[in-house]
Structure formats: structure tokens, C-alpha cells
């Protein structure tokens, strides 16, 4: 059975950023735990989130559905550009390819360095 562990780390940049460190696989059996954790953090006041994908070896469309929900939940969206509220850190080559295939890279910033990501919010 798939498993997904989510650690929450709070970082301070120009704004407070909630980092969700994902460890495991994101598929139809686990994606709701990502959505629920993000909703929980939003209720606690999180307005800026970074999904740390370093330890995600596999993600299906269910993971992108969760990402889409988080993107919508955080708001601050314009039709023309990337959201200032959500970022991705270190997706694998294969996950990056799917991000691009689905066009999510036009709306969500992707970073390869944690400090760079935090300071960009």
C-alpha cells in the first residue's frame, strides 16, 4: 500500500511560509491527506505554502488534483501569471515532466533550493 508522510516546517522570509515536506507516493490512496493537511494549515493562518517534493518518487494525477485544490484554496490568483502563494521545491525529473505536460509550471513557481524558494515568496 502507498504511504505519504507530511512534515510541516514553518519558515520566515519576507512573509511566513509553511513548508509541507512530502515523503512517499502521492496517488489516489494518499492525495486526500495532502489536501487535508494543507486545509488544516490554512485554517491555522497559513497563506503561503511550499510543497517540498524532494522525497516524492511518484505522483499521479491525483497529486495534481490536490495541488490544484491547494492552488485554488490559497487564492490571490490572476489569469495571467504565477501565484505568489504556492511553490514547488525539487520535484524529480519525471514529476517535473508531468508538471509541464499539464501546464502547471505556467501557474506555480518551481524551485531547486529551499532558501531561494523562501526568499522568493
Amino acid at each position: 500500500m502507498s504511504s505519504l508522510k507530511i512534515n510541516v516546517v514553518n519558515k520566515e522570509g519576507r512573509v511566513p511560509v509553511t513548508v509541507l515536506q512530502l515523503i512517499g507516493q502521492v496517488d489516489a490512496s494518499t492525495y486526500t491527506s495532502l489536501q487535508e493537511k494543507a486545509e488544516e494549515e490554512k485554517k491555522e493562518g497559513a497563506d503561503y505554502m511550499l510543497l517540498d517534493m524532494t522525497e516524492v518518487g511518484y505522483m499521479s494525477s491525483a497529486g495534481f488534483k490536490a495541488m490544484h485544490s491547494i492552488y485554488s484554496m490559497l487564492g490571490g490568483i490572476t489569469d495571467g501569471g504565477k501565484t505568489p502563494h504556492l511553490g514547488l521545491l525539487n520535484p524529480t525529473d519525471e514529476v517535473s515532466r508531468i508538471v509541464k505536460t499539464l501546464g502547471f509550471d505556467s501557474y506555480i513557481n518551481i524551485y531547486s533550493d529551499l532558501d531561494e524558494a523562501i526568499s522568493a515568496f
Binding site: S61, A62, K65, H68, Y71, I77, T78, D79, G80, L102
Partner: peptide, 22 residues
């Protein structure tokens, strides 16, 4: 329709799209 901005895009249908694409 991936030309629709993400903010107005339906949250379903991506799985079959990826199957056909890949």
C-alpha cells in the same frame, strides 16, 4: 482544455489525458 487558466480549469480528467499523451 489545458489552454484554460488553472484557476478556471476543471479538476478532473487529467489522468486519462496523461494516459493518452504518454
Amino acid at each position: 482544455d489545458l489552454n484554460v487558466p488553472l484557476s478556471r480549469r476543471s479538476k478532473g480528467g487529467m489522468g486519462v489525458y496523461l494516459m493518452k499523451k504518454n
